[in-house]
Design a protein around this nucleic acid. Structure first.
Length: 570
RNA sequence: GCGCCCGUAGCUCAGUUGGAUAGAGCGGCGGUUUCCUAAACCGCAGGCCGUGGGUUCAAAUCCCGCCGGGCGCACCA
């Protein structure tokens, strides 16, 4: 695909006298106009002529220069149309030779990207509120990896804080009243909730909890630390089950506790840099000079009672991560509610004169809302929608639909899992990150329209054609590339995939790939219902099969980057 | 009150960083199955791109004001 662009670009540069890499192209509004468009407005000034005149003139001049490409002036636009046979041969050839690597590149070679994502709190089951960071973060990890970056996914689990004092005491007292065997995390949640109530009502309990937390903080080995370690382990084991179903993998699991030893040195570092001051008894960094919007909200590094905070830990983590990885970018996939927090931290780094501060990016996303746009996952309310239960619901519905559509399906369980989870993941990634996601179960369960299952279904249909072709022994002839008049939009779309992946990485925006896949699916479906593949003249069948194979590869590659499986049957 | 984000079809959203007649899905209406899986495809209806100004040859897109909605606002994470 690049080769055509390059040829056009160079020819255009020759005739306009402008630098080749300055010329901007776009896709024509209507694919009937052409495959690539060059708006002549931008060069009108330099050439001192009216855009339509330039377009007409260039079309004239270029026609002799380009082979296999026709240039037509339509008003102020110069539209290029690549001969279908040539376009098909080249695009399909590129996809065939790159196969599973098509869409990827090596632009990121020798560069490291740190991605902080998912980061649930231990001692509680993962609820639906964790899903966005988890899914977006994992998709980014795969996207960057496919571009040759070394991606380091870090799970910054919440394993520290005063609440563990209460939990430890609750364990001591009520351990035997809950089931910590079958689903330990559910039992722990119960204990956690009871401990919160007890701290409020029972002074003795509160005192003991505080003592336990101090014991934990001291770093001393002993029963408290042992208990805390056990809680961490069973929680992580619980998370792992969910992660496995969703295809989530972290390179490092580092809880907040990991950074405990770095807190004092970090505070010291800030103090040495001369940016701290004491205000109302707390150690703060004033940020108004860096960012006017932060005048009234300095960053607190130490409370008036001497203890450190969330910000202190995150600041420590930033330094530690830079020193360990020398990252190109460090992405925090965290909800938009925490924008102020990251804005403050970046301002602190800036005040300290840290030159890599721009590499820290808060990749924020909108809220997860229930039907009626009500907030779903509020931490303060007891009602939490447990993620595993949601997944089970969707997978069960998927199984029902699989068997309804395809009663003979023997592998319904596997496919239901793929379709259900595909629906959940795709639902989260199909819109821009910033938008709130309305979690409408009936919409997710419909499996129709702009959904993961739509893309998966398209993939399964393509796989089915290939299966039938091989059963019938078709496709062995030399491909006849001339029968692609109607495949233009599809071919252009297939050729564009690498740019889409690249752009999704730059913007840290997986939705660009999701949107692309939906559009590609429409192109594919529209094409193959009109162009039967099997049973044509051998050369035509061979060429169409090659296009089917290429389309299937691109869908599979795109889905792999986002997370959903690409089943061969549904 | 201050800061940030959002406002495009009845609903949910795209719109290639300023370009052609603003596009999809859902919902509505009407079609397509002796034909590679109808989770699909085709057609019709549906728009003052919140609003008022400005910049520009050109604005849904950039700037300013206003209206409406959301999130956040030092000793929680």
């Amino acid at each position: 695909m690049q080769t055509f662009q390059l040829q056009i670009r160079e020819a255009l540069a020759r005739h306009t006298g402008l630098a080749a890499d300055e010329l901007k192209f776009e896709l024509p509004r209507d694919s009937a106009l052409g495959d690539l468009a060059f708006p002549c407005f931008a060069v009108a000034k330099a050439l001192k002529k009216a855009p339509p005149a330039i377009a007409a003139e260039l079309a004239q001049k270029l026609s002799s220069d380009l082979t296999g490409i026709t240039a037509v002036a339509t008003g102020p636009y110069l539209n290029f149309r690549i001969a279908r046979a040539e376009l098909a041969r080249v695009v399909v050839g590129e996809i065939e030779s790159a196969a599973a690597r098509y869409g990827g590149s090596s632009v990121g070679a020798n560069k490291t990207i740190v991605i902080d994502f998912s980061s649930p709190n231990i001692a509680k089951p993962m609820h639906v509120g964790h899903i966005r960071s988890t899914i977006i973060g994992q998709a980014l990890h795969r996207i960057f990896t496919s571009l040759g970056y070394k991606a380091v996914g870090i799970n910054h689990i919440g394993d520290w804080g005063a609440q563990f004092g209460g939990l430890v005491v609750a364990m001591r007292r009520w351990k035997d009243t809950v089931d910590l065997e079958t689903e330990p995390v559910h039992g722990l949640l119960d204990l956690y909730q009871r401990s919160k109530a007890a701290i409020a009502e029972d002074p003795e309990f509160a005192r003991e909890a505080k003592e336990a937390y101090q014991e934990l903080e001291s770093g001393r080995e002993g029963p408290v630390r042992e208990l805390w370690r056990w809680i961490t382990e069973v929680s992580l084991r619980g998370f792992d089950k969910t992660y496995k179903r969703l295809g989530i993998h972290h390179d490092l699991v580092r809880g907040e506790a990991f950074y405990e030893d770095l807190l004092e040195p970090t505070v010291e570092r800030a103090t040495q840099a001369g940016v701290t001051e004491v205000s109302e008894g707390a150690l703060v960094v004033q940020l108004g000079a860096i960012d006017k919007g932060l005048t009234e909200t300095p960053c607190l590094l130490r409370q008036s009672n001497g203890t450190t905070l969330y910000a202190t830990r995150d600041l420590a983590a930033m330094f530690q991560r830079y020193e360990e990885f020398h990252f190109e970018r460090c992405l925090y996939v965290v909800g938009a509610e925490q924008k102020l927090h990251f804005r403050q931290l970046k301002a602190v780094l800036k005040r300290m004169g840290v030159e890599w501060e721009p590499r820290i990016e808060h990749i924020y996303f909108g809220l997860l809302l229930g039907p009626g746009r009500v907030k779903l996952a509020s931490r303060n309310k007891g009602e939490v929608l447990i993620l595993d239960e949601l997944i089970d619901d969707v997978v069960n519905e998927a199984r029902r639909v699989v068997l309804e559509k395809n009663p003979a399906q023997r592998d319904a369980d596997t496919i239901a899992e793929q379709v259900g989870i595909g629906a959940i993941i795709f639902n989260d990634l199909k819109r821009e990150r910033i938008r709130d996601v309305v979690f409408d179960k009936s919409e997710i369960l419909s499996f129709e329209g702009e959904t993961g299952p739509y893309v998966q279904y398209t993939h399964a249909r393509l796989a089915s054609i290939l299966r039938k072709a091989s059963e019938a022994g078709e496709g062995g002839a030399a491909p006849d590339w001339t029968a692609f008049e109607e495949a233009g939009p599809l071919l252009v779309a297939l050729g564009r995939f690498p740019e889409v992946v690249q752009s999704a990485a730059v913007h840290a925006e997986p939705s660009e790939i999701a949107t692309y896949l939906l559009s590609l699916g429409r192109d594919i479906n529209a094409w193959y219902v009109q162009n039967r593949v099997l049973g044509q003249a051998p050369g035509v069948t061979a060429a169409r099969l090659a296009l089917v194979r290429a389309s299937k590869t691109v869908i599979a590659n795109g889905l792999r980057l986002l997370g959903p499986a690409a089943p061969d049957e549904m």
